[in-house]
Amino acid sequence: MSYQLEKFKLGLEQLKIPYSDEKINQYLIYYEMLTEKNKVMNLTAITEFEDVVEKHFLDSLSLIKCVDLNRKMQVLDLGTGAGFPGIPLKIAFPELEIVLMDSLNKRVLFLQEVISELNLSGITAVHGRAEEMAVKKEYREQFDLCVSRAVANLSSLSEYCLPFVRVGGNFVSYKSGEVEEEVKQAGKAISVLGGKMVKVQKFVLPQTDVSRSFVLIEKKKRTPKSYPRKAGTPSRTPIQ
């Protein structure tokens, strides 16, 4: 199958992300595996190639606007779903050591297939809920960077993500354009969990007029042992 790659390559160039034929081929194999698996399980509502390039691949990779990714880092992609942003980040920045974490085992099994098919090393997919995984010593405060494109309010997301981040590391939440009110409401949660709000970085997706925001939070002190609270609580009753 042939694909129109001009917009993808232009988007990568705008983000100053180097690519090769081999890497483009990895993205294409990933796309084909994603759309094929999507016929039997719900991975994404976005399936047209150009839309996946814009709204999944380039959106995932836009993190370069907010964080220097050209170095070795331990990265957690929490609530990774179909592998975004973790797998595009791994293809583009092979130095990153990435853990993809998701609460649905079927998705994790799919991601393990993708990792194997793309011959990626230094990346694993694990099954588990954030509230349970964050208390395990092999994960708690072990990551330089936690990223999440999961749909949840910032207060809840901070409770899921910050316990995984080491002091001095960062949590970046991918959000749609308008986030000011949400950021304000999450202020107490971020502070209680040991984080400090650094910045909201707004941008427009390459080759589109879609506005997005990154919320960058730095981990300043250790998260109290009582967080995250038990399963489901952070979403039902966010820290206010």
Rank of each mutant, 00 (worst) to 15 (best):
F84C: 00
K230P: 08
V165Q: 14
K16Q: 11
T233E: 15
V67I: 15
V198K: 11
N153I: 12
V167T: 15
K188C: 04
V179F: 04
Q201I: 13
A45M: 02
L43H: 05
M73Y: 00
I17P: 04
L61F: 02
F84N: 01
F57I: 03
K219F: 06
K202T: 07
L78H: 04
S60Y: 03
L111G: 11
D68T: 07
V179N: 06
L111D: 13
L28P: 00
K16T: 01
V99E: 06
Y227Q: 10
L28W: 00
R166P: 10
S173G: 14
H56T: 01
F84W: 01
G79C: 00
I46F: 04
V200Y: 05
N105Y: 10
S20V: 04
L96K: 06
Q4A: 14
T233Q: 15
A134G: 10
L157E: 13
K220L: 11
H56N: 01
L104Y: 10
T237V: 14
E113D: 15
V53N: 04
E181C: 02
G187Y: 05
K199Q: 14
Q74V: 04
D21F: 05
L96P: 07
K37M: 08
L104C: 05
K184Y: 14
T233N: 11
L216V: 15
P163V: 07
P94N: 10
C66Y: 00
R140W: 09
V179I: 14
L76K: 01
K9L: 10
R229V: 08
E13Q: 13
L205E: 04
Q185C: 00
E6Q: 10
F49H: 02
V183W: 09
P228Y: 07
L15G: 05
G81I: 01
V147Q: 09
Q4Y: 13
H56Q: 03
Q142V: 10
E182N: 15
L58M: 03
E117L: 08
E178F: 13
Q14N: 12
K65M: 02
K188Q: 13
M33D: 04
M41P: 09
Y160H: 12
K65E: 06
F143D: 07
L15R: 06
K37D: 03
T47Q: 07
Q14P: 01
L15Y: 09
D59I: 01
S20C: 00
V165F: 11
E182C: 08
E218G: 12
P234E: 08
G194K: 11
